[in-house]
Amino acid sequence: MLKFSKMHGLGNDFVVIDAINQQLELSSSQIRFLADRRRGIGCDQLLLVEMASESSIDFKYRIFNSDGSEVAQCGNGARCFARFVRDKELTAKDSIAVETASGVIYLNLNTNGDVQVDMGLPHFAPTDIPFLEEQQDITYSLLLSDEQQVEIGAVSMGNPHAVMLVDDVKTAEVEILGPMIENHNQFPERVNVGFMAISNPSQIN
Rank of each mutant, 00 (worst) to 15 (best):
R79M: 00
I31R: 12
N185V: 07
D36H: 06
V117K: 03
V191H: 14
D44K: 06
L48F: 10
I176W: 12
G158V: 02
I41H: 08
I20N: 08
I176F: 12
L48D: 11
M51E: 14
G42R: 09
V191Q: 13
D13R: 07
E89R: 14
L165F: 14
D114S: 05
S141R: 13
P160K: 09
G42P: 12
N205V: 09
A72P: 05
A197G: 08
N185F: 14
L142G: 05
A78M: 02
G40C: 08
K60P: 02
L24P: 13
S56D: 13
R32D: 04
S55M: 04
D58R: 01
S102P: 00
G11V: 02
D118T: 02
T100A: 01
I129V: 06
V155H: 15
M1S: 11
L165R: 15
H184V: 08
V166L: 11
A101P: 05
E173S: 13
R37I: 15
F14A: 12
R37A: 13
F4D: 02
E25F: 08
R37P: 15
D137S: 15
V117L: 01
P130S: 06
R86S: 05
A19C: 09
E189C: 15
L47S: 05
I176M: 13
E134T: 08
S66R: 14
C43W: 10
G120E: 02
I105L: 00
N108F: 02
D128Y: 09
